[in-house]
Design a protein around this nucleic acid. Sequence first.
DNA 1: TATCATACGAACAGTTCTGTTCGATTAAGC
DNA 2: GCTTAATCGAACAGAACTGTTCGTATGATA
Lengths: 199, 199
Amino acid sequence: MVTRVRKTKSVDRILAAAAELFYLHGLRGVGVEQVIERSGVAKSTLYVHFRTKEDLVAEYLRRTDESWRARLRAAAEAAGPAAADQLVGVFDALVDAFDRHGFFGCPFISAAVETTLDSEARAITIQHTERRQEWLAELSEQAGASDARGLAQQIGLLIDGALASGRLLQDRTVVDGAKAAAGHLIGSHLAVAQPTSVI
Amino acid sequence: MVTRVRKTKSVDRILAAAAELFYLHGLRGVGVEQVIERSGVAKSTLYVHFRTKEDLVAEYLRRTDESWRARLRAAAEAAGPAAADQLVGVFDALVDAFDRHGFFGCPFISAAVETTLDSEARAITIQHTERRQEWLAELSEQAGASDARGLAQQIGLLIDGALASGRLLQDRTVVDGAKAAAGHLIGSHLAVAQPTSVI
DNA sequence: TATCATACGAACAGTTCTGTTCGATTAAGC
DNA sequence: GCTTAATCGAACAGAACTGTTCGTATGATA
Protein backbone atom coordinates (compact mmCIF):
# COMPACT_ATOMS: atom_id res chain seq x y z
CA MET A 1 0.00 0.00 0.00
CA VAL A 2 2.64 2.46 0.98
CA THR A 3 4.58 1.43 -2.04
CA ARG A 4 1.58 2.50 -4.04
CA VAL A 5 1.66 5.84 -2.27
CA ARG A 6 5.31 6.33 -3.10
CA LYS A 7 4.78 5.40 -6.70
CA THR A 8 1.91 7.79 -7.06
CA LYS A 9 3.94 10.53 -5.47
CA SER A 10 6.71 10.15 -8.01
CA VAL A 11 4.39 10.27 -10.98
CA ASP A 12 2.53 13.20 -9.54
CA ARG A 13 5.66 15.14 -8.83
CA ILE A 14 6.81 14.56 -12.38
CA LEU A 15 3.48 15.66 -13.81
CA ALA A 16 3.29 18.68 -11.54
CA ALA A 17 6.74 19.80 -12.61
CA ALA A 18 5.93 19.12 -16.23
CA ALA A 19 2.72 21.11 -15.99
CA GLU A 20 4.49 24.16 -14.60
CA LEU A 21 7.31 24.04 -17.10
CA PHE A 22 5.26 23.22 -20.17
CA TYR A 23 2.82 25.93 -19.25
CA LEU A 24 5.54 28.53 -18.96
CA HIS A 25 7.91 27.60 -21.75
CA GLY A 26 5.90 25.48 -24.12
CA LEU A 27 6.17 21.80 -24.96
CA ARG A 28 9.23 22.08 -27.14
CA GLY A 29 10.87 24.58 -24.83
CA VAL A 30 11.22 22.12 -21.97
CA GLY A 31 13.52 19.12 -21.88
CA VAL A 32 13.15 16.05 -19.70
CA GLU A 33 16.31 17.11 -17.91
CA GLN A 34 14.50 20.20 -16.65
CA VAL A 35 11.49 18.15 -15.65
CA ILE A 36 13.54 15.77 -13.53
CA GLU A 37 15.50 18.58 -11.96
CA ARG A 38 12.34 20.41 -10.99
CA SER A 39 10.50 17.33 -9.79
CA GLY A 40 13.50 15.95 -7.94
CA VAL A 41 13.26 12.44 -9.33
CA ALA A 42 15.92 10.47 -11.13
CA LYS A 43 15.81 10.36 -14.88
CA SER A 44 15.53 6.60 -14.79
CA THR A 45 12.44 6.95 -12.61
CA LEU A 46 10.81 9.23 -15.11
CA TYR A 47 11.43 6.73 -17.87
CA VAL A 48 9.97 3.97 -15.74
CA HIS A 49 6.66 5.81 -15.65
CA PHE A 50 6.72 7.34 -19.11
CA ARG A 51 8.09 5.49 -22.07
CA THR A 52 8.96 8.65 -23.99
CA LYS A 53 8.70 12.39 -23.62
CA GLU A 54 5.74 12.24 -25.97
CA ASP A 55 3.96 9.98 -23.50
CA LEU A 56 4.63 12.47 -20.75
CA VAL A 57 3.26 15.29 -22.85
CA ALA A 58 0.18 13.26 -23.70
CA GLU A 59 -0.55 12.44 -20.07
CA TYR A 60 0.03 16.06 -19.12
CA LEU A 61 -2.47 17.18 -21.74
CA ARG A 62 -5.01 14.57 -20.66
CA ARG A 63 -4.90 15.82 -17.08
CA THR A 64 -5.00 19.42 -18.18
CA ASP A 65 -8.01 18.72 -20.35
CA GLU A 66 -10.00 17.64 -17.33
CA SER A 67 -8.83 20.31 -14.92
CA TRP A 68 -9.25 23.08 -17.44
CA ARG A 69 -12.76 22.11 -18.41
CA ALA A 70 -13.62 21.71 -14.75
CA ARG A 71 -12.51 25.26 -14.14
CA LEU A 72 -14.60 26.57 -16.98
CA ARG A 73 -17.59 24.68 -15.64
CA ALA A 74 -17.04 25.94 -12.12
CA ALA A 75 -16.79 29.52 -13.28
CA ALA A 76 -19.96 29.12 -15.30
CA GLU A 77 -21.92 27.65 -12.42
CA ALA A 78 -20.72 30.37 -10.08
CA ALA A 79 -22.40 32.92 -12.34
CA GLY A 80 -25.89 31.77 -11.42
CA PRO A 81 -28.58 29.41 -12.67
CA ALA A 82 -29.41 31.14 -15.96
CA ALA A 83 -27.60 29.60 -18.91
CA ALA A 84 -27.04 32.98 -20.54
CA ASP A 85 -25.31 34.23 -17.41
CA GLN A 86 -23.26 31.07 -17.24
CA LEU A 87 -21.98 31.62 -20.76
CA VAL A 88 -20.66 34.98 -19.72
CA GLY A 89 -19.41 33.59 -16.42
CA VAL A 90 -17.11 31.18 -18.27
CA PHE A 91 -14.75 34.06 -18.79
CA ASP A 92 -14.26 34.46 -15.06
CA ALA A 93 -12.14 31.34 -15.28
CA LEU A 94 -9.77 33.27 -17.52
CA VAL A 95 -9.79 36.21 -15.14
CA ASP A 96 -8.92 33.90 -12.27
CA ALA A 97 -6.16 32.23 -14.23
CA PHE A 98 -4.72 35.58 -15.13
CA ASP A 99 -4.78 36.86 -11.57
CA ARG A 100 -3.32 33.67 -10.16
CA HIS A 101 -0.20 33.16 -12.17
CA GLY A 102 0.19 35.79 -14.81
CA PHE A 103 -1.08 34.56 -18.08
CA PHE A 104 0.41 32.08 -20.41
CA GLY A 105 -2.66 30.85 -22.11
CA CYS A 106 -4.27 27.55 -21.64
CA PRO A 107 -1.79 24.88 -22.58
CA PHE A 108 -3.83 23.93 -25.59
CA ILE A 109 -2.91 27.06 -27.46
CA SER A 110 0.70 25.99 -27.10
CA ALA A 111 -0.17 22.46 -28.03
CA ALA A 112 -1.96 23.63 -31.16
CA VAL A 113 1.24 25.28 -32.29
CA GLU A 114 3.87 22.89 -31.03
CA THR A 115 2.53 19.51 -31.97
CA THR A 116 2.75 17.72 -35.27
CA LEU A 117 -0.39 16.81 -37.15
CA ASP A 118 -0.11 13.11 -36.48
CA SER A 119 0.81 13.24 -32.81
CA GLU A 120 -1.29 11.90 -29.96
CA ALA A 121 -0.85 15.28 -28.31
CA ARG A 122 -2.71 16.93 -31.14
CA ALA A 123 -5.49 14.37 -31.01
CA ILE A 124 -5.95 15.09 -27.32
CA THR A 125 -5.93 18.80 -27.97
CA ILE A 126 -8.57 18.53 -30.66
CA GLN A 127 -10.69 16.34 -28.43
CA HIS A 128 -10.39 18.88 -25.65
CA THR A 129 -11.62 21.64 -27.90
CA GLU A 130 -14.48 19.55 -29.21
CA ARG A 131 -15.61 18.68 -25.71
CA ARG A 132 -15.48 22.29 -24.69
CA GLN A 133 -17.47 23.34 -27.73
CA GLU A 134 -20.06 20.66 -27.13
CA TRP A 135 -20.56 21.91 -23.61
CA LEU A 136 -20.75 25.53 -24.76
CA ALA A 137 -23.32 24.50 -27.36
CA GLU A 138 -25.44 22.85 -24.67
CA LEU A 139 -25.33 25.99 -22.59
CA SER A 140 -26.18 28.06 -25.65
CA GLU A 141 -29.16 25.88 -26.35
CA GLN A 142 -30.37 26.13 -22.77
CA ALA A 143 -30.02 29.87 -23.06
CA GLY A 144 -32.41 29.77 -25.97
CA ALA A 145 -30.08 30.59 -28.82
CA SER A 146 -31.51 29.75 -32.22
CA ASP A 147 -28.08 28.80 -33.58
CA ALA A 148 -26.54 27.19 -30.53
CA ARG A 149 -23.48 25.77 -32.23
CA GLY A 150 -22.83 29.07 -33.93
CA LEU A 151 -22.94 30.99 -30.68
CA ALA A 152 -20.77 28.38 -29.01
CA GLN A 153 -18.25 28.68 -31.80
CA GLN A 154 -18.06 32.42 -31.42
CA ILE A 155 -17.60 32.19 -27.68
CA GLY A 156 -14.90 29.62 -28.26
CA LEU A 157 -13.17 32.04 -30.59
CA LEU A 158 -13.19 34.68 -27.89
CA ILE A 159 -11.76 32.27 -25.35
CA ASP A 160 -8.95 31.17 -27.65
CA GLY A 161 -8.29 34.71 -28.73
CA ALA A 162 -8.06 35.85 -25.14
CA LEU A 163 -5.68 33.04 -24.31
CA ALA A 164 -3.44 33.78 -27.26
CA SER A 165 -3.44 37.57 -26.95
CA GLY A 166 -3.24 37.41 -23.19
CA ARG A 167 -0.16 35.28 -23.38
CA LEU A 168 1.50 37.62 -25.80
CA LEU A 169 0.59 40.96 -24.31
CA GLN A 170 0.29 40.02 -20.65
CA ASP A 171 -2.62 42.45 -20.51
CA ARG A 172 -5.61 41.53 -18.43
CA THR A 173 -7.94 43.94 -20.20
CA VAL A 174 -8.11 41.47 -23.07
CA VAL A 175 -9.92 39.10 -20.76
CA ASP A 176 -12.38 41.80 -19.76
CA GLY A 177 -12.84 42.67 -23.42
CA ALA A 178 -13.53 39.05 -24.24
CA LYS A 179 -16.13 38.84 -21.52
CA ALA A 180 -17.84 42.00 -22.72
CA ALA A 181 -17.80 40.75 -26.28
CA ALA A 182 -19.36 37.49 -25.17
CA GLY A 183 -22.15 39.46 -23.55
CA HIS A 184 -22.82 41.28 -26.78
CA LEU A 185 -22.76 38.13 -28.87
CA ILE A 186 -25.11 36.29 -26.55
CA GLY A 187 -27.43 39.27 -26.66
CA SER A 188 -27.39 39.25 -30.44
CA HIS A 189 -28.11 35.55 -30.69
CA LEU A 190 -30.92 35.64 -28.15
CA ALA A 191 -32.39 38.74 -29.77
CA VAL A 192 -32.82 36.76 -32.94
CA ALA A 193 -34.40 33.91 -31.04
CA GLN A 194 -36.68 36.11 -28.97
CA PRO A 195 -37.55 39.05 -31.21
CA THR A 196 -39.69 40.66 -28.52
CA SER A 197 -36.76 41.75 -26.40
CA VAL A 198 -35.06 44.31 -28.58
CA ILE A 199 -36.70 45.18 -31.84
CA MET B 1 25.12 45.52 -59.80
CA VAL B 2 24.70 41.90 -60.75
CA THR B 3 26.52 40.93 -57.61
CA ARG B 4 23.82 42.84 -55.80
CA VAL B 5 21.21 40.83 -57.62
CA ARG B 6 22.84 37.55 -56.71
CA LYS B 7 23.18 38.55 -53.11
CA THR B 8 19.56 39.53 -52.91
CA LYS B 9 18.52 36.28 -54.47
CA SER B 10 20.31 34.25 -51.85
CA VAL B 11 18.80 36.14 -48.95
CA ASP B 12 15.39 35.99 -50.50
CA ARG B 13 15.59 32.30 -51.13
CA ILE B 14 16.60 31.76 -47.55
CA LEU B 15 13.77 33.89 -46.25
CA ALA B 16 11.25 32.29 -48.57
CA ALA B 17 12.22 28.84 -47.38
CA ALA B 18 12.23 29.99 -43.76
CA ALA B 19 8.78 31.49 -44.14
CA GLU B 20 7.31 28.28 -45.50
CA LEU B 21 8.94 26.07 -42.92
CA PHE B 22 8.36 28.28 -39.90
CA TYR B 23 4.77 28.73 -40.95
CA LEU B 24 4.16 25.01 -41.16
CA HIS B 25 6.20 23.65 -38.29
CA GLY B 26 6.75 26.55 -35.95
CA LEU B 27 9.92 28.43 -35.08
CA ARG B 28 11.34 25.81 -32.80
CA GLY B 29 10.29 23.00 -35.07
CA VAL B 30 12.61 24.03 -37.89
CA GLY B 31 16.39 23.82 -37.87
CA VAL B 32 18.78 25.82 -40.01
CA GLU B 33 19.74 22.60 -41.71
CA GLN B 34 16.21 22.30 -43.06
CA VAL B 35 16.22 25.92 -44.15
CA ILE B 36 19.39 25.54 -46.16
CA GLU B 37 18.23 22.30 -47.70
CA ARG B 38 14.95 23.85 -48.81
CA SER B 39 16.51 27.09 -50.03
CA GLY B 40 19.39 25.34 -51.74
CA VAL B 41 22.10 27.57 -50.33
CA ALA B 42 25.18 26.54 -48.42
CA LYS B 43 25.12 26.76 -44.66
CA SER B 44 28.05 29.12 -44.74
CA THR B 45 26.07 31.41 -47.02
CA LEU B 46 23.19 31.52 -44.59
CA TYR B 47 25.54 32.47 -41.80
CA VAL B 48 27.04 35.21 -43.92
CA HIS B 49 23.65 36.88 -44.15
CA PHE B 50 22.32 36.04 -40.72
CA ARG B 51 24.54 36.02 -37.69
CA THR B 52 22.37 33.56 -35.80
CA LYS B 53 19.14 31.65 -36.23
CA GLU B 54 17.54 34.23 -33.98
CA ASP B 55 18.45 36.91 -36.48
CA LEU B 56 16.85 34.91 -39.24
CA VAL B 57 13.70 34.48 -37.21
CA ALA B 58 13.60 38.19 -36.44
CA GLU B 59 13.96 39.18 -40.07
CA TYR B 60 11.34 36.63 -41.05
CA LEU B 61 8.93 38.11 -38.53
CA ARG B 62 9.66 41.65 -39.67
CA ARG B 63 8.80 40.80 -43.25
CA THR B 64 5.74 38.87 -42.21
CA ASP B 65 4.56 41.78 -40.12
CA GLU B 66 4.40 43.98 -43.18
CA SER B 67 2.93 41.47 -45.58
CA TRP B 68 0.33 40.30 -43.12
CA ARG B 69 -0.89 43.76 -42.22
CA ALA B 70 -0.94 44.64 -45.90
CA ARG B 71 -3.22 41.70 -46.54
CA LEU B 72 -5.56 42.74 -43.78
CA ARG B 73 -5.64 46.26 -45.17
CA ALA B 74 -6.28 45.04 -48.69
CA ALA B 75 -9.14 42.84 -47.56
CA ALA B 76 -10.65 45.73 -45.63
CA GLU B 77 -10.46 48.13 -48.55
CA ALA B 78 -11.96 45.58 -50.88
CA ALA B 79 -15.07 45.56 -48.71
CA GLY B 80 -16.08 49.07 -49.71
CA PRO B 81 -15.67 52.63 -48.51
CA ALA B 82 -17.65 52.41 -45.27
CA ALA B 83 -15.44 51.83 -42.22
CA ALA B 84 -17.96 49.48 -40.64
CA ASP B 85 -17.94 47.30 -43.74
CA GLN B 86 -14.16 47.38 -43.81
CA LEU B 87 -14.00 46.07 -40.25
CA VAL B 88 -16.00 43.05 -41.32
CA GLY B 89 -14.04 42.76 -44.54
CA VAL B 90 -10.83 42.26 -42.62
CA PHE B 91 -11.88 38.68 -42.07
CA ASP B 92 -11.83 38.00 -45.78
CA ALA B 93 -8.06 38.02 -45.46
CA LEU B 94 -8.39 35.01 -43.19
CA VAL B 95 -10.76 33.33 -45.62
CA ASP B 96 -8.27 33.88 -48.42
CA ALA B 97 -5.39 32.57 -46.36
CA PHE B 98 -7.37 29.48 -45.46
CA ASP B 99 -8.33 28.79 -49.05
CA ARG B 100 -4.84 29.37 -50.37
CA HIS B 101 -2.69 27.09 -48.29
CA GLY B 102 -4.71 25.31 -45.69
CA PHE B 103 -4.56 27.10 -42.42
CA PHE B 104 -1.76 27.31 -39.98
CA GLY B 105 -2.55 30.58 -38.35
CA CYS B 106 -0.70 33.75 -38.83
CA PRO B 107 2.88 33.20 -37.77
CA PHE B 108 2.46 35.47 -34.82
CA ILE B 109 0.34 32.99 -32.95
CA SER B 110 3.26 30.61 -33.19
CA ALA B 111 5.67 33.34 -32.24
CA ALA B 112 3.61 34.22 -29.18
CA VAL B 113 4.02 30.67 -27.96
CA GLU B 114 7.50 29.83 -29.09
CA THR B 115 9.52 32.88 -28.17
CA THR B 116 11.03 33.77 -24.84
CA LEU B 117 9.95 36.89 -23.06
CA ASP B 118 13.19 38.75 -23.68
CA SER B 119 13.70 37.84 -27.33
CA GLU B 120 13.70 40.27 -30.21
CA ALA B 121 11.22 37.97 -31.90
CA ARG B 122 8.71 38.62 -29.14
CA ALA B 123 9.26 42.36 -29.33
CA ILE B 124 8.52 42.27 -33.05
CA THR B 125 5.46 40.15 -32.43
CA ILE B 126 4.11 42.54 -29.81
CA GLN B 127 4.77 45.49 -32.08
CA HIS B 128 2.94 43.75 -34.89
CA THR B 129 -0.10 43.25 -32.70
CA GLU B 130 -0.04 46.81 -31.45
CA ARG B 131 0.15 48.18 -34.97
CA ARG B 132 -2.73 46.02 -36.05
CA GLN B 133 -4.80 47.11 -33.07
CA GLU B 134 -4.04 50.76 -33.70
CA TRP B 135 -5.25 50.41 -37.24
CA LEU B 136 -8.38 48.55 -36.15
CA ALA B 137 -9.05 51.28 -33.62
CA GLU B 138 -8.80 53.92 -36.33
CA LEU B 139 -11.29 52.03 -38.45
CA SER B 140 -13.55 51.63 -35.44
CA GLU B 141 -13.46 55.33 -34.79
CA GLN B 142 -14.24 56.13 -38.41
CA ALA B 143 -17.14 53.73 -38.16
CA GLY B 144 -18.47 55.81 -35.30
CA ALA B 145 -17.91 53.46 -32.40
CA SER B 146 -18.10 55.17 -29.03
CA ASP B 147 -15.43 52.89 -27.59
CA ALA B 148 -13.17 52.48 -30.58
CA ARG B 149 -10.32 50.77 -28.74
CA GLY B 150 -12.74 48.42 -27.09
CA LEU B 151 -14.29 47.38 -30.36
CA ALA B 152 -10.87 47.03 -31.93
CA GLN B 153 -9.76 44.81 -29.09
CA GLN B 154 -12.74 42.55 -29.51
CA ILE B 155 -12.20 42.24 -33.24
CA GLY B 156 -8.57 41.47 -32.54
CA LEU B 157 -9.65 38.70 -30.21
CA LEU B 158 -11.78 37.18 -32.93
CA ILE B 159 -8.90 37.33 -35.39
CA ASP B 160 -6.49 35.67 -33.00
CA GLY B 161 -9.07 33.14 -31.95
CA ALA B 162 -9.78 32.25 -35.56
CA LEU B 163 -6.08 31.87 -36.27
CA ALA B 164 -5.53 29.65 -33.27
CA SER B 165 -8.64 27.49 -33.66
CA GLY B 166 -8.29 27.37 -37.40
CA ARG B 167 -4.79 26.03 -37.10
CA LEU B 168 -5.85 23.37 -34.67
CA LEU B 169 -9.09 22.22 -36.23
CA GLN B 170 -8.38 22.94 -39.89
CA ASP B 171 -12.02 23.97 -40.15
CA ARG B 172 -12.88 26.92 -42.28
CA THR B 173 -16.23 27.51 -40.63
CA VAL B 174 -14.40 29.09 -37.72
CA VAL B 175 -13.38 31.91 -40.03
CA ASP B 176 -16.97 32.40 -41.13
CA GLY B 177 -18.05 32.34 -37.50
CA ALA B 178 -15.47 34.96 -36.64
CA LYS B 179 -16.67 37.18 -39.43
CA ALA B 180 -20.29 36.83 -38.33
CA ALA B 181 -19.32 37.55 -34.74
CA ALA B 182 -17.48 40.67 -35.85
CA GLY B 183 -20.63 41.85 -37.57
CA HIS B 184 -22.62 41.41 -34.38
CA LEU B 185 -20.04 43.16 -32.25
CA ILE B 186 -19.77 46.11 -34.62
CA GLY B 187 -23.54 46.35 -34.60
CA SER B 188 -23.61 46.39 -30.83
CA HIS B 189 -20.95 49.07 -30.56
CA LEU B 190 -22.53 51.30 -33.16
CA ALA B 191 -25.97 50.82 -31.63
CA VAL B 192 -24.65 52.35 -28.44
CA ALA B 193 -23.09 55.23 -30.32
CA GLN B 194 -26.15 55.90 -32.46
CA PRO B 195 -29.18 55.05 -30.33
CA THR B 196 -31.56 55.96 -33.15
CA SER B 197 -30.74 52.93 -35.24
CA VAL B 198 -32.01 50.10 -33.09
CA ILE B 199 -33.83 51.06 -29.94
C1' DT C 1 43.47 39.10 -67.79
C1' DA C 2 43.56 40.28 -62.86
C1' DT C 3 40.53 41.29 -59.08
C1' DC C 4 36.93 41.04 -55.85
C1' DA C 5 32.61 39.71 -53.84
C1' DT C 6 29.63 35.91 -53.52
C1' DA C 7 28.61 31.34 -52.92
C1' DC C 8 29.74 26.49 -52.36
C1' DG C 9 30.63 22.18 -49.78
C1' DA C 10 32.30 19.48 -46.52
C1' DA C 11 34.31 18.74 -42.44
C1' DC C 12 34.46 19.89 -37.60
C1' DA C 13 33.52 21.62 -32.71
C1' DG C 14 30.55 21.98 -29.00
C1' DT C 15 26.27 21.75 -26.95
C1' DT C 16 21.81 19.89 -25.92
C1' DC C 17 18.48 16.51 -26.14
C1' DT C 18 16.28 11.90 -25.71
C1' DG C 19 16.66 7.55 -24.06
C1' DT C 20 19.42 3.38 -21.82
C1' DT C 21 21.81 0.75 -18.43
C1' DC C 22 22.96 -1.01 -14.08
C1' DG C 23 24.59 -1.46 -9.56
C1' DA C 24 23.44 0.62 -5.06
C1' DT C 25 19.88 2.14 -1.78
C1' DT C 26 15.64 2.58 0.68
C1' DA C 27 11.61 1.10 2.91
C1' DA C 28 7.46 -1.56 3.39
C1' DG C 29 5.22 -6.28 3.88
C1' DC C 30 5.66 -11.06 5.18
C1' DG D 1 15.40 -10.63 9.09
C1' DC D 2 14.18 -11.48 4.20
C1' DT D 3 11.95 -10.29 0.04
C1' DT D 4 10.26 -7.20 -3.24
C1' DA D 5 9.17 -2.97 -5.54
C1' DA D 6 10.45 1.66 -6.18
C1' DT D 7 13.93 4.87 -6.51
C1' DC D 8 18.45 6.77 -7.09
C1' DG D 9 22.69 8.31 -9.37
C1' DA D 10 25.85 8.43 -12.64
C1' DA D 11 27.65 7.15 -16.67
C1' DC D 12 26.89 6.37 -21.50
C1' DA D 13 25.11 6.16 -26.50
C1' DG D 14 23.38 8.39 -30.32
C1' DA D 15 21.10 11.85 -32.60
C1' DA D 16 20.09 16.68 -33.71
C1' DC D 17 21.19 21.31 -33.60
C1' DT D 18 23.85 25.74 -33.88
C1' DG D 19 27.69 27.81 -35.42
C1' DT D 20 32.76 27.84 -37.54
C1' DT D 21 36.37 27.19 -40.81
C1' DC D 22 38.57 27.08 -45.02
C1' DG D 23 39.90 25.74 -49.53
C1' DT D 24 37.52 26.04 -53.99
C1' DA D 25 34.67 27.77 -57.69
C1' DT D 26 32.11 31.23 -60.25
C1' DG D 27 31.23 35.31 -62.51
C1' DA D 28 31.06 40.29 -63.00
C1' DT D 29 33.95 44.37 -63.33
C1' DA D 30 37.88 47.19 -64.32
